[in-house]
């Protein structure tokens, strides 16, 4: 099962694009979307590895290591994965804003 619905076909931008944004071209929008999907794929891989991987599938194997007094697998399942989740969201919020600005599709309209 793929966590991110990646199966979508590369969309052919409709010829009559109603978007009246001056700076925004259809090509920019498509490029932005591809960069976004690549970033999502990386972050969701980490999401899967720390929770389903370290916390569930590999938990018994990881338990042979000790970390701050915890068995490592147990620590991932009850502590570590949650910290990584928080970090992942902030990393995404920060990285995607850089990508948006690069393609001119960010939402900083006037105010900052």
């Amino acid at each position: 099962m793929s966590e991110q619905p990646q199966h979508h076909s590369v969309e052919n931008p409709s010829p009559q694009d109603h978007n009246d944004q001056k700076t925004l071209t259809t090509q920019n929008a498509a490029d932005y979307w591809h960069s976004n999907l690549r970033l999502l794929a990386k972050l969701l891989t980490v999401w899967f590895v720390v929770s389903f991987g370290c916390g569930i599938l590999l938990v018994d194997w990881l338990d042979q290591f000790t970390f701050f007094g915890f068995k490592l697998g147990f620590w991932f399942a009850q502590q570590g994965a949650i910290y990584v989740f928080v970090a992942l969201i902030f990393i995404y919020a920060w990285r995607i804003q850089t990508i948006e600005r690069q393609f001119g599709v960010d939402d900083d309209e006037g105010s900052l």
Partner: peptide, 9 residues
Amino acid sequence: DDIRIPSGA
């Protein structure tokens, strides 16, 4: 297409 792009909200 429109909801995928942050600008304009």
